[in-house]
Simulated assay, not measured.
Amino acid sequence: MIIVMKAGAVKKDKDEVLKRIKELGYKPHVIHGATRDVIGAVGDERGKAVLQSIESMHGVENVVPILQPYKLASKEVKKESSIIPITDTLSIGGKQLIVMAGPCSVESEEQIIASAMAVKEAGAHVLRGGAFKPRTSPYSFQGLEEEGLKLLAKARDLTGLPIVTEVVNPETAELVAEYADILQIGARNAQNFALLKKVGQLKKAVLLKRGMSMTIQEFLMSAEYIMSEGNQSVILCERGIRTFETATRNTLDLSAIPVLKEKTHLPIIADPSHGTGNYHYVAPMAYAAVAAGADGLIIEVHPDPEHASSDGPQSLKPAKFARMMAQLRLFAEAAEREL
Score class of each variant (00 low, 15 high):
I3D: 05
M5A: 11
A9K: 02
V10F: 08
K12S: 07
L18D: 02
E23W: 03
I31T: 05
I31Y: 07
A34D: 05
T35Q: 10
I39H: 08
G40T: 08
L51G: 03
S53R: 07
E55C: 01
M57D: 05
E61V: 11
E61F: 14
E61Y: 15
N62R: 15
P65W: 13
L67S: 14
P69A: 02
Y70N: 00
K71W: 10
A73G: 09
V77P: 11
S82Q: 10
I83G: 00
T87H: 06
T87P: 11
T89R: 09
T89V: 04
L90G: 10
G94C: 07
K95W: 03
I98Q: 09
V99M: 04
G102Y: 11
P103M: 11
V106L: 11
S115W: 06
A116E: 04
G123W: 03
G123D: 08
A124K: 07
L127H: 10
R135T: 13
R135V: 06
P138D: 10
F141K: 12
E145K: 15
E147P: 08
E147Y: 09
A153N: 05
A153V: 08
K154F: 00
A155I: 03
G160P: 06
G160F: 02
I163S: 11
I163R: 04
E166P: 15
V168I: 15
N169R: 13
P170Y: 12
E171D: 15
L175R: 14
L175D: 12
V176Y: 10
D181V: 02
I182C: 04
I182K: 08
L183E: 04
I185A: 06
I185H: 10
R188Y: 03
L195Y: 00
K203E: 13
K204D: 01
L207Q: 04
L207I: 10
R210M: 00
M212Y: 15
S213F: 05
F219L: 04
M221S: 05
Y225P: 15
M227R: 12
Q232T: 05
S233T: 07
G240A: 05
I241C: 02
I241S: 08
T243K: 01
F244T: 05
T246G: 08
N250S: 08
L252G: 07
I257K: 11
P258W: 01
E262P: 07
K263V: 11
I269T: 03
A270M: 02
S273G: 11
G277N: 07
H280I: 12
Y281F: 15
A288P: 01
A289R: 04
A291S: 14
A294K: 10
A294M: 14
G296R: 06
L297M: 07
D304C: 05
E306D: 14
A308M: 09
D311R: 05
G312S: 01
P313Q: 05
P318A: 12
M324H: 09
M324E: 03
R329Q: 10
E336P: 00
L339C: 02
